[in-house]
Amino acid sequence: MNRREMLLLLAGTATLPDQLLAMGRAVHKRAHAGTLRALTPHQNETVATIAELILPKTDTPGARDAGVPAFIDVMLAEWVGDEERKMFTAGLADVDTRARAMFAKDFVACSAEQQTQLLTTLDAELARLRDTKADTSKSFLGGMKWLTLTGYYTSEVGATSELNYRVVPGRYEPCYPLDQ
């Protein structure tokens, strides 16, 4: 639905359609990135590198371009509890410990292949937890994946380029053929 359609839809109501979509934006300024609040620059770069490995730039933008690292920093600073934050930063430290053991470098200094190899190991460990119905809530990668996906698909870039998200769909189709 475009703006004109929206105006037509609203014709006859006593509201102020011009303000319709602008309204929320005026009130709810988006959180600006720039200053890190929960993470150190090194931790932030590690987060950004892993996020981009999970959802890389393809024919659509990747996690970095979608502002996922800034979102994760906000979530760590203001949303998660102290215990969860500690678990997350301990997980980041563990990634570096493993990288140094395997490749004698911090994770961010590793080659893309080395990074992929390490992340594959972590992903297999997470899969084992799932397969054995063990507790995955303490898994660093489990939390990192959830944060990355949430940050990406709810970003303007992710929701509009990768998904077909529309604030106002304008109609309900109960059984619509998917584009092949």
């Binding site: 319709l20 979509l21 309204m23 929320g24 934006r25 009130v27 709810h28 988006r30 959180a31 979102f71 906000v74 979530m75 203001e78 949303w79 949430t150 940050g151 709810t154 970003s155 303007e156 929701a159 998200y165 604030v167 106002v168």
Partner: peptide, 11 residues
């Protein structure tokens, strides 16, 4: 009509 990305905690 506030899009998800306009919300600090994405809803």
């Amino acid at each position: 009509h506030v899009p998800m990305w306009e919300m600090k905690f994405r809803g």
